[in-house]
Design a protein around this nucleic acid. Structure first.
Length: 292
DNA sequence: AGCCAGGCTAAGA
DNA sequence: TCTTAGCATGGC
């Protein structure tokens, strides 16, 4: 019989909306459990978390340092700095007021790299199923609370799967993309752990060379996995919103034109703003300008 | 049942 | 350089 799970907590000082943060389309492995608990992985170790009053509390099989949890949830001043310095855009203000505790997570670049290649032209439910199946097939086992879970597979394990095995997860035509991408990392051609400290434009250009990665997915990887907060993923809705609201055009607009506008209008944290706009639209509906 | 999904690639203007 | 068909699969 294994020992009971370890438990620890952090005293929260800024707003944290766990529900919005974990289920806003930036992470795909969290699940809602009983009594307000959420089951998932941090630093690729199983963990169960819950907010209790103004504390973030968690249980894990292995010790999980508060500093690591704080890093994952961005419980440092970069979130508050964004709230303070966010541009006085009336639409962004609407989203900020509704979800003040929505945070950009700091996730593992390798996992985000693979996850967002899978995400193309798919939907969240399907993406989650595919990633879970991938972990079940190739991820290292981890025991937590008498359950056998599977962590996200490391590059070598994923690279060892054949395209046929990859297709069995339901990822369809993306299988050769994932196969090639995993090999690029497994052989050291790509180094995800360096992407956060390299210039945004350099990594963006490098990612575009990878089959299956275009501008939108590249920006998702940079924003959600590499802490490059100016990366501005424009899915069909964000794109339409920017075109109709700000650019006032119906003609086709290039991704780079959208990004250029976003940087001028939203500044260095454009990607942070994007995440609020995106989440608000999915949870609440069309954005209206805030009345002040 | 049929359209759509946090798009991308390749081919053809 | 810009536009468009085709793409695997499953959710809704």
């Amino acid at each position: 019989m294994a020992a009971g799970p370890l438990e620890d907590h952090i005293q929260l000082e800024g707003p944290l909306d766990v529900e919005a943060t974990l289920y806003s389309g930036q992470a795909f492995r969290w699940r809602r459990g009983d009594q307000g608990w959420h089951d998932g992985f941090v630093r690729n170790h199983p963990v169960r978390i819950r907010k209790e009053n103004d504390e973030l509390r968690w249980r894990s099989a292995r010790p999980m340092k508060p500093q690591h949890m704080a890093h994952y949830f961005r419980l440092d001043d970069s979130h508050d700095a964004f709230l303070r310095s966010a541009p006085r855009d009336p639409f962004l203000q609407t989203a900020l007021a509704r979800f003040p505790g929505l945070r950009l997570l700091r996730q593992d670049p390798w996992e985000i790299f693979i996850s967002f290649i899978i995400s193309q032209n798919s939907n969240e439910a399907k993406i989650r199923r595919t990633i879970e199946d991938l972990c079940r097939r190739a991820g290292p086992k981890a025991t937590f609370d008498n359950q056998t879970l599977h962590a996200f597979p490391p590059p070598a394990r994923l690279a060892a799967l054949s395209e046929k095995e990859l297709r069995a997860t339901g990822m369809g035509y993306r299988a050769p993309f994932i196969h090639a991408a995993a090999n690029l990392v497994a052989t050291g051609t790509l180094e995800p752990h360096r992407w956060a400290t390299r210039p945004y434009e350099d990594v963006f250009g490098e990612l575009l060379e990878v089959p299956g990665i275009g501008e939108k997915v590249a920006d998702c990887i940079l924003l959600y996995g590499c802490d490059h907060r100016r990366a501005f993923p424009s899915d069909v809705w964000v794109r339409r919103f920017v075109k109709e609201t700000y650019l006032r055009t119906r003609s086709r607009t290039s991704h780079s034109a959208i990004r250029d506008f976003a940087w001028r209008h939203f500044g260095e944290d454009a990607g942070y703003a994007q995440h609020y706009l995106f989440h608000y639209r999915r949870r609440v509906g069309a954005l209206a300008a805030s009345p002040s």
